[in-house]
Amino acid sequence: MSQKPVESGFHHPLVVRFHEVDSMQVVHHSMYLQWLEACRWAFARDVLDLTPTGFNELGFALPVVRAQLDYVEPATLESDILIVMHYILQEKVMVSFKYRVYDRTTGKLIMRARTDHAVMSVETRRLQIQWPDAWLAKTGRAVEQYPHYFAPDEKKPSRR
């Protein structure tokens, strides 16, 4: 029987597939970035009501500018995985997420990670210096509805 971590946050489950492992049936390190991206898109769809097309319609994109992954334990073929993600609320015009990846069967922590994303205009391809109103509206509603999916920036208090 699967065992879920008690940690709150946005939960994204997955099972390790054959093409994600190497010859020793251990997940290749590059797959974890794809898992984090899948988790972010599930969050955007389920919590912010945004699709990839919806982002373009809002007029901005969130390119990854930094990714930090700390591998703790290997995941293997057919492991039952749970990614727990928090959107980090911060003052600067940047979107950040922190993640904990668990093996749901054993409860072991597999990986800790963080990604930071610039807020960039789709039209001009320039960085935004203030939060787009549409993003503030989407995240504001989400914070009210799902406060346990959001975490304050460890460095500074936030308005969002």
Rank of each mutant, 00 (worst) to 15 (best):
M1Y: 05
K4T: 10
K4E: 15
P5D: 13
P5W: 03
V6M: 13
V6Q: 14
S8D: 14
G9N: 10
G9H: 11
P13R: 15
V15C: 03
F18L: 13
F18C: 05
V21L: 13
V21T: 15
M24I: 02
Q25C: 01
V26D: 04
V26E: 06
H28G: 02
H29T: 07
H29W: 12
S30A: 14
Q34M: 12
Q34I: 08
Q34C: 11
E37G: 04
A38W: 01
C39L: 06
C39N: 08
R40H: 11
A42T: 03
A42F: 00
F43N: 05
F43K: 08
A44N: 12
R45D: 15
R45M: 11
R45G: 05
D46F: 06
V47A: 11
V47H: 11
L48I: 09
P52F: 12
P52S: 11
T53L: 08
F55T: 09
E57V: 10
E57K: 15
E57C: 05
L62W: 09
P63K: 13
V64E: 10
R66E: 13
A67R: 06
Q68M: 04
Q68C: 01
L69P: 03
D70W: 02
E73C: 03
A75G: 13
A75V: 00
S79Q: 10
D80L: 09
L82Y: 05
L82T: 01
L82E: 08
I83C: 11
I83L: 13
I83S: 07
I83K: 07
V84H: 02
H86W: 10
H86G: 07
L89P: 01
Q90K: 06
Q90R: 14
K92R: 14
V93A: 05
V93K: 07
V95I: 08
F97W: 06
Y99T: 06
V101R: 00
Y102G: 00
D103N: 14
R104P: 03
R104Q: 11
R104F: 02
T105Q: 07
G107H: 09
I110D: 00
M111H: 02
M111N: 09
R112G: 04
R112M: 04
R112F: 06
T115H: 05
D116M: 09
H117Y: 01
A118D: 11
V119P: 02
T124K: 15
R126C: 10
R126Q: 14
Q128H: 15
W131A: 00
P132N: 13
A134I: 05
A134L: 12
W135K: 10
T139C: 04
G140P: 01
R141S: 08
A142N: 06
A142I: 07
E144G: 03
Q145M: 06
H148R: 13
Y149G: 03
A151N: 08
D153Q: 15
D153E: 14
K156Q: 10
P157D: 14
S158G: 08
S158C: 09
R159V: 03
R160M: 10
R160S: 04
